[in-house]
């Protein structure tokens, strides 16, 4: 069949571009790429980069929704580009923007350093309740004890929940949903004894009480981590902890 006889279906992507060396402010650019039924938004972006405009910048790696690199706003919603298939989006142009609430470094690349600092700030490692040597073997942990924190350990650090969080949008110092989920992942672990130390990091004005319980963070989470639930559990823990301080010898600090 001559090529002209085959109508090539295309899809249009409207992408928010920003090149710090040449652009004063971000502006949309439009691209049309051939559409196939199994194409992801990431593959469409790769097609643009490989064939139309090599200057388009975005992060990606695993292509299978586990490395957390390719979060972006797709039609206004925070999503991973790799597991968002074009066929599941409404007809018409697809709008692509960098993740909300983060400074844009270039095109779809946002600054991630502050997010990593938040993760580091909550003591994201086991502080053993009862230290043990390797020679003494593994700790016992029943499936029920595992289930108490397992879903919070599934966070891939994709930052979609931060893009969804209105509170983080207003106050970039807010500890935010992802770090709270990680905190709950360790505080809920039967092997851990660092609960108090971590709770102390979230009492302040940028801590757990900043959350206004919108719940959009859990809605956009691609791994069903349910950070809103982690935040709520920690509000309870934080309140309980606050109350206990008055009962403890030494009282409030």
């Amino acid at each position: 069949m001559p090529e002209a006889a085959t109508a090539v279906k295309t899809v249009e992507l409207k992408i928010l571009r920003y090149r710090p060396a040449s652009d004063e402010r971000p502006a949309f650019g439009s691209f049309k790429v051939p559409y196939t039924e199994d194409m992801s938004v990431l593959e469409a972006l790769q097609t643009i980069k490989d064939t139309l405009d090599g200057t388009l910048s975005f992060r990606w790696s695993c292509r299978m929704a586990v490395c957390g690199s390719c979060g972006m706003m797709i039609n206004g919603k925070p999503q991973l580009a790799c597991n968002t298939l074009l066929r599941n989006l409404p007809p018409g142009p697809v709008t692509i923007e960098p993740l909300n609430n983060f400074p844009i470094e270039r095109d779809l690349v946002v600054s991630v350093g502050d997010f990593v600092k938040k993760i580091e700030s909550i003591y994201p490692y086991i502080i053993p309740k009862e230290p043990k040597t390797v020679a003494e073997g593994p700790y016992l942990q029943t499936p029920a004890q595992l289930a108490a924190y397992e879903s919070f350990s599934d966070c891939i650090n994709c930052m979609l929940c931060y893009a969804a969080c209105p509170q983080f949008g207003e106050n970039p110092n807010f500890i935010g949903p992802g770090a709270m989920a990680l905190l709950q992942r360790y505080n809920g672990d039967s092997r851990d004894g660092g609960q108090q130390k971590r709770l102390d990091t979230i009492h302040g004005e940028d801590g757990v009480w900043s959350c206004t319980a919108v719940g959009y963070c859990s809605e956009v989470c691609p791994k069903q981590v349910d950070p809103a639930n982690a935040v709520n559990q920690n509000k309870t823990n934080s309140a309980f902890d606050f109350f206990l301080r008055f009962l403890r010898p030494g009282g409030a600090r």
């Binding site: 043990k132 593994p138 499936p143 851990d192």
Partner: peptide, 16 residues
């Protein structure tokens, strides 16, 4: 085992 001590959520048997 070292990874287990560091918190790796290995799947468990019913007895832990």
């Amino acid at each position: 085992i070292q990874l287990e001590h560091w918190g790796c959520p290995w799947s468990r048997k019913p007895d832990g």
